[in-house]
Design a protein around this nucleic acid. Structure first.
Lengths: 192, 192
DNA sequence: TCAAATAATTGACCGTGGTCATTATTTGAT
DNA sequence: ATCAAATAATGACCACGGTCAATTATTTGA
């Protein structure tokens, strides 16, 4: 049991992913159809499901890859000193998350790890984001009476709340940044 | 344009809802199939979609009805004086929300009102819950430096965060109550 | 070198949500 | 009572994700 997977397997998977990425770049994640992925990749439909558990597994992979890029940039950035700059630095990620309703729903569904015990790409990204954010919380002015882990989880809760309301027509007048700040300032800042 | 809808319409809709409720009571929300609803109701498939925009619209109605019952009870209850009792009083709603993964996902997706400008049954329930919770926040010990509205929205954010993590296998060891309390106490309580 | 074992691929088929042109029923005006 | 317009119901049909027994390709070992 040394090299179980043949290189044909990798080639096929690469073709599938490449086809999928092409479709997404043309029409967005929402426009992806399994049938079109396989036809572009030149394989049969069954092959797709031999490589991905279901369509969502592919979407998770594609979206996870994008998130990872954004997180790469995020972890290079200097730790923000104010809530305002913290929000600003998270903005690229937030904008990607709301770029399509479909994307947001999928991230939401898989952010708390998949239904089973195996954690998927999106769950990994959320965990990574939590780690990055936790590293920011040793700043001056941030409350100390709550574990950092709770604080970081709270930030994510407010991110999802903010983005969820962003899709609500009644609330789109308030920009993402200021809404998120109105949550994070009372959550993070130490009071008198 | 006096009485546009004929009573036949109401009768058909009632039959559909009754059939749907029967199916749900037998096998849960996840087990509902449109085909079975229409066959039990004795109507054609197309009729279903003349009464409900899509399957989700029916699910929203059924789940919204349940939530409304729970909210009826909730709004009768005395305002809690501690975060612990607040969580306890919300517990029936929380348990319903996590009774099925399907139910949680649907509530999450429609809690921020539907995609369009029309607010659906679940969105109404969330708004109602927000109102009830806001009424609780005039208690001793609750912070005053943040608008009640923000405070209430934050509670909802933490509820969703808690329930989301509840489905994550890695986190099921922590019970809902204590997890939610660990968010709400730092969020709500005034500090020294 | 080749046969057995293992792995990858195929595509016909299915389940289920959703559509729409056609048909049936109700209503209101005469 | 009659009939035309408005409203409701029908069911064949489609889209699309997902399955699986059969087939083909690859690896292994003697």
């Amino acid at each position: 049991m040394e090299k179980q997977i043949q290189k044909r397997t990798l080639a096929t998977r690469a073709k599938l992913v490449a086809a999928a990425e092409a479709i997404v770049s043309e029409g967005g994640f929402d426009a992806l159809r399994v049938e079109e992925v396989v036809s572009r990749a030149g394989v049969a439909k069954g092959t797709f499901f031999a490589h991905f558990r279901d369509k969502d597994a592919l979407m998770e992979r594609l979206i996870g890859a994008r998130l990872d890029c954004i997180l790469d940039a995020l972890s290079e950035v200097p730790a923000p000193v104010t809530v305002g700059t913290m929000v600003d630095e998270m903005l690229p990620m937030l904008h990607f998350m709301v770029s399509e309703r479909y994307v947001f729903d999928l991230i939401l569904r898989y952010s708390g790890a998949a239904l089973t015990d195996d954690i998927g790409p999106i769950g990994m990204c959320i965990a990574r984001h939590e780690t990055v954010v936790m590293g920011w919380l040793n700043a001056e002015g941030v409350r100390r009476d709550v574990p950092l882990k709770i604080l970081a989880e709270g930030i994510q809760a407010f991110v999802f709340q903010t983005l969820g309301l962003h899709f609500c027509a009644l609330h789109t007048d308030v920009p993402i940044q200021s809404r998120l700040r109105s949550y994070l300032e009372p959550w993070l800042l130490a009071r008198s």
